[in-house]
Each structure stands twice: as C-alpha cells, then as structure tokens.
Design a protein around this nucleic acid. Structure first.
Lengths: 232, 232
DNA sequence: ATGGCGGGTTGACATTTATCAATTGATTTG
DNA sequence: CAAATCAATTGATAAATGTCAACCCGCCAT
C-alpha cells in the first residue's frame, strides 16, 4: 500500500486515535485491490470476512428480495462499509458493487475484532461510527415513512445542493435510475417527480439541477435536521 | 430500586460483563420511575440526557414530520432505548411514549459515556448492542423498500407467530392502528390487507390471528432471514 | 458513418394506497 | 342502564405509484 493511502486511512475517524502499533498490525493483514466498475464485491447472506474501505471510486450497497432490488446507500471515499457485520461476525445484510473503477482496502474482520479488544481508542471510534450509521438509517427510514416521493426528491435536492456548496445550480452525483432506487421509486416516477417540482422552480438538464426559487422549494420540502442533516 | 430489578438490569447483555463497581456507580446515578400510559417520555430534537431502560410495560418510539407521524419501533422489557443518541451526545431522533403503565429506569447519559471509557467490557457490549440495532433498522428498511404492504403484513404475522411459540393461533401484541403505523400503512389499509390474506388461510378475530395454511402463507410471504430474522 | 444499445422520457393504463364519511361493535363512564 | 367514546371496519372515491410499451437521444463500436 502506498504511503499516501496509508496516511489517508490513518486519518479516518475510525483509525485516527488508535495506537500506532495496533494500526500497523491492522494494516499488515490488510490488502488493497483495484476493481473495475460493476463488480460485486460482497453478496448479502455471505459471512463477513472483511471490513472494506473505499479509497477511490464509489460503491453501491443494495439488497434484493423476490426478484426486486433496491439501492440502500452509496459509499464514497474515504469511508468504510459493513462495519456492523464485521463486529457481530454475522452475515452481510446488503450486497455491494463498484459503481466505477474503485480502489478498495480489505481488512480481515477477525483482525478488527481482535484490535477492538486491545485498543480502547479504537473501540470508542467504532462505537461512534456505529452510532452514526444507526442514526443515518433511522433518518432514512423517517424519510421513507413520513414523506411522499415528491417530498423525498425535493429534500434530496436540497441536501445535494448543500453538499455541492450551496449554489443554485449543481450536478446530481449519480445516475437517475439509481437515484430513483435510493429514493424508493421507479425511474418513470422520478422523471415525473422532477416535472412535479417545476412549479417550485426546479429545472433539470441532464444531470444538472438548477434551483431557481430556493424559498419556494424549501417551503414545499420542509427540510428538517432530524431527517436531513447527516452530521448530527 | 428493588434488588430484583437491580439484578434484572444487571443481567442485560449491555451490563452483564462489566465490572461490579462500574455497574454500581452507573446505578447510583440512575433513578427509576413509574409512568402512566400515554406519557411522552422523550421528544425528538431534545438533547439526550438519559439512557432509558424499560423494566415493565412498553414504550412506543415514533417520529413526526409535517403533521404526519409514524411508529418506528416498540420497546419491551427488559431493554434499553436511545443508546445511539446517548453515545453520540446528539439530539433524540425519535420521540418515546408509554403504551401502558410502565416502569422505566433512567441513567444519565454522561455517566454512560464516562463508564464506557473506563470499562472495556461495557464498551464491547455497547458496540454489540449498537451493531444489533443498526442491523435491525437495515432489515426494517429492506422490508419497507422491497415489499408491498400485503407482503409486509404476511411476514409480520409469520414473525409474530414464531415469537409467540409457533402455534397456528396467536395474539397480536398491539393495537391494529399502531401495527398499521409500524408497517407503514393506514389502519383502513391494514383492515383490507387482513382480508387480502384470507385466501392464504389467515383468519382474524379481534386480536387473535389464526394461520390455517402455513405452507400457503409462507409461499406468499417468502420470509427471508436477512429481513425477518431478528437474532442475526 | 451508422447501427445498436442503454438510459431517460412519455403516454396510457392498472394497481396500490390514502382519504373521507359513515357505520359497527366493544368498552368505558356517568 | 344508557350515553359517550374510540377502535375497527366498510364503501366510495381520489391520489399516488407502478407497469408496459413506445420513443428519443447520446454514445459507443463495428
């Protein structure tokens, strides 16, 4: 593993506070690999042998049942995924596939569990990370259960806008078909939902979104930090 | 706090392995209180001052937005809730209200965080608990996004049946209106959904459910451990 | 260049789900 | 006991969402 990556991983909240030699021994067992796009890294139901870290590229976490499937989340650099399965030594609940060419680090789950027991700073970081993940899913669930698809889209756009710096125009960061899946609707419906937001000043050109009337859209979307704010 | 309760709490996975004096000091700051039914114990958005433990009774975790509300989960004895908010020292994401007369223990959040740092067994237990909670919400989300309301009801019945011992007949463990909210539908819809399951051998009499054709219902519901099995 | 190919869009339609109003039935309360 | 209350159900209707088919369009590969 190149030094720069090693340092980038070290800087992750999850690893930043742990003892040097513990981090070193975690990394000794790890390996890093480049994957092409559309590779299934992990299949739901399988034992969770590795904690994964996305170094570059992006990964889609999704799940399937009875012929249907849905996108649960997207993992972008630099962060980890399937921490909970690793900790519990339980089967993956979601599958993961690369969305583009990606560089992924894999740390054997048993090493993570061993170092967890030995390093209390690491343990604390894991707890914080898990609590964060838990709260994110709760927010997603509230989004799903309390809002219509139009409201979900409106709030998604506002979140994405903020994430992109807050300007009136910004780019969607993924394919519309996948956005539809993330938001829990069909691509056809998403297309119509975009139309449905035109009266609130939303214009769409390809992947470019422009919010022409911020106040109007916010009045409709009613964003709420207890659902839309990912930092808390 | 009576000795028997003290021992019951001690037996919780969360506290079972921690050092005696740490547990004692946690409990010293705690207090136990009886609440009548329908009391709002916690309001979403407020700072999370206490970790709560349901000793007897039951508690509904719910959330509201824009005039709508939805039931997220039910907490039954003996278990804790809002652990993640306590750990992160962040606002509650859900409100909590007693469903019936309930006895609740409250442990100051700052004590939990302090002992967490001091007791690695406690820390490990918290991690396991959080990972469990996280996985439960992921399962709930898959249930919501991948299944129709009829399928959700069918699978709920199968879970409840198993929970009740596996017999063909069993009792719903809550009001239908709240079941509807948990399953993400309206009460009217739930009523119709029960009718919709009649062809698969489900009979409803008040809160009593009878599954007359197990195989048929399972063929329809297609239960899946990665969604419906709460233990993994 | 051009012929697929796939994502996106659109329209027509079916299905699902919600809403509103009214009724039933059981339980509580004066 | 009767009135009041509330959960549950039912019917009628509306709104939201999904499905299917067709089409457009940009992109890639031959």
């Amino acid at each position: 593993m190149p030094d720069s990556e090693y340092r980038d991983i070290r800087k992750l909240d999850l690893f930043a506070q742990m003892a040097d030699d513990n981090f070193t021994s975690l990394m000794r067992g790890a390996y890093v690999q480049n994957f092409p796009a559309q590779i299934e890294l992990v299949t739901e139901g399988e034992p969770s042998d590795f904690l994964h870290i996305v170094i570059t590229g992006s990964v889609d976490l999704f799940s399937a049942w009875n012929g249907r499937d849905t996108s649960m989340a997207t993992v972008r650099p630099i962060s980890t995924f399937i921490l909970a399965a690793t900790i519990k030594d339980a089967p993956y609940l979601m599958s993961a596939r690369t969305l583009e060419k990606s560089r992924i680090a894999l740390i054997p789950s048993q090493d993570v569990r061993a170092i967890f027991d030995a390093d209390s700073n690491f343990a604390r970081a894991i707890v914080t990370e898990l609590a964060q993940c838990y709260r994110s899913v709760i927010k997603a669930q509230k989004d799903l259960k309390l809002r219509t698809s139009l409201e979900r889209l409106a709030n998604y756009l506002l979140r994405q806008q903020r994430h992109a710096g807050g300007g009136a125009a910004f780019e969607l960061d993924f394919e519309k078909r996948r956005l539809a899946s993330v938001l829990g609707m069909t691509p056809e419906n998403l297309s119509r939902a975009f139309k449905g937001l035109q009266p609130y000043g939303v214009t769409v050109t390809g992947t470019r979104i422009s919010i022409d009337n911020q106040a109007d859209l916010e009045r409709f979307a009613k964003p709420n930090p207890l659902i839309d704010d990912f930092s808390t």
